[in-house]
Design a protein around this nucleic acid. Sequence first.
DNA 1: GCCAACGTTGGC
DNA 2: GCCAACGTTGGC
Length: 149
Amino acid sequence: MKSEPADVSIDDLATFPNQSVAWYGVRNYQARNFMRDQMKIGDGVLFYHSNCKVPGIAGVARVASLAYPDATQFDRNNKYFDAKATPEEPRWFNVDVQLVKKIALISLAELRKHPALSRMRTLQPGNRLSITPLDPAEWEYITTKLVQG
DNA sequence: GCCAACGTTGGC
DNA sequence: GCCAACGTTGGC
């Protein structure tokens, strides 16, 4: 799951109550569907810093709730406000994401060096999806071989 | 700041 | 339902 550290960084997450955050602001249907239809409490998450100086995986987290309506879609003053969404028929959903551990950053450049990860969605050219499923083998490889300590 | 890739919008 | 125009993403 990608987050811009200028918005919510791994260090920000560590300071939040329960070290948990509602993953608000997703306005892409595919990414929404992943949260709404596939995520279960306890699922592993790689917390990825994007659109920053050194993009890469900054921490391990977990899904801490099932998907529920994203509150920002109803807030007229929020940049994620969506006039077409109503509480009766919400368009956008989020899950809660809870920190498991901050890790030494695994940069995008580093990730690209590993043939085992060559098919990872996030690494495909032109991929812009902020939320992508991870192959179990990829999860295993990253969390056992690339995460230090 | 550039720009390629992609998603969304809206006229027809 | 096509598709051009436009907006966004995000690495570099």
